[in-house]
Amino acid sequence: MSARTSEIASYNFAYLDEQTKRMIRRAILKGIAIPGYQVPFASREMPMPYGWGTGGVQITASIIGRDDVLKVIDQGADDTTNAVSIRAFFARVAGVAVTTETAKATIIQTRHRIPEHPLGEGQVLVYQVPIPEPLRYLEPRETETRKMHALEEYGLMHVKLYEDIARHGHIATTYAYPVKVEGRYVMDPSPTPKFDNPKMHMSPALQLFGAGREKRIYALPPYTRVVSLDFEDHPFEVQRFEQPCALCGARNVYLDEVILDDRGGRMFVCSDTDYCEKRRDEGGVAANPFEPDEAAT
């Protein structure tokens, strides 16, 4: 470890300087104090392009300590380019321990998924957010959207859902599905599938959201009420998958479609690679008719 830190001696711990971290921590604390409220912050240039998680990386850099264990996922996977490079970045600039196991991580930075393994108290989930403003779709003016948040004028969110039902017969929004936080602020949960929305509700973990390009931070403190918007006659529903994971046989998890060949062959597998591997290590396979998740639901 000492050899590595000396190599990058010109960097402060976790890349950002201490003043910047304090500035970001203040924004985080304000976000925690006002759940769902978008706090503007002075987003810094990071050694990666916008769209690669610069908001999440700045949050992680500001809260990470030497004893933390970091997990990074991209669409549920620990082994994709984005996840691997961010994990490597922190291993290098902070020298912290990294893991792919959800239960072992103290900080999980994520792009567009919440792990299947339930999060616990003491864990922090850091979301990378591209567009933090849920009202942006119908109201392009930032001055107006801020006013709408301030005055709790959220009729427009339902206009969007109305349009969905009018066009598709049901609410067709499947990701970045808007939620109301503690009965006050409407929030964009980042482009996670709506499948993950219920996991945000009353989660024991702290959830932090960072949008680098848009310079906004928002937060859900542990045990916060998070309700997905809907209509009385078109209630919120999560996606259902007809078949279990082709690899581990899990049901009631979010599945990715994998194209196998150019003749229409495909299979559905867990999007959460760590969860899938764990289950396979423990002996759960697709061929196994034993399905523990059925009993759990």
């Binding site: 009729g155 339902h158 109305y162 039902i165 809907d230 009385e232």
Partner: peptide, 25 residues
């Protein structure tokens, strides 16, 4: 709102005052 349907244009005020029943709107 030129980019949403006629129905949503008429329904927006109802939704703004808290109507949450699609069929009724």
């Amino acid at each position: 709102r030129m980019n949403v349907s006629a129905g949503a244009n008429v329904g927006e005020r109802l939704m703004a005052v808290g109507d949450r029943h699609y069929g009724r709107i």
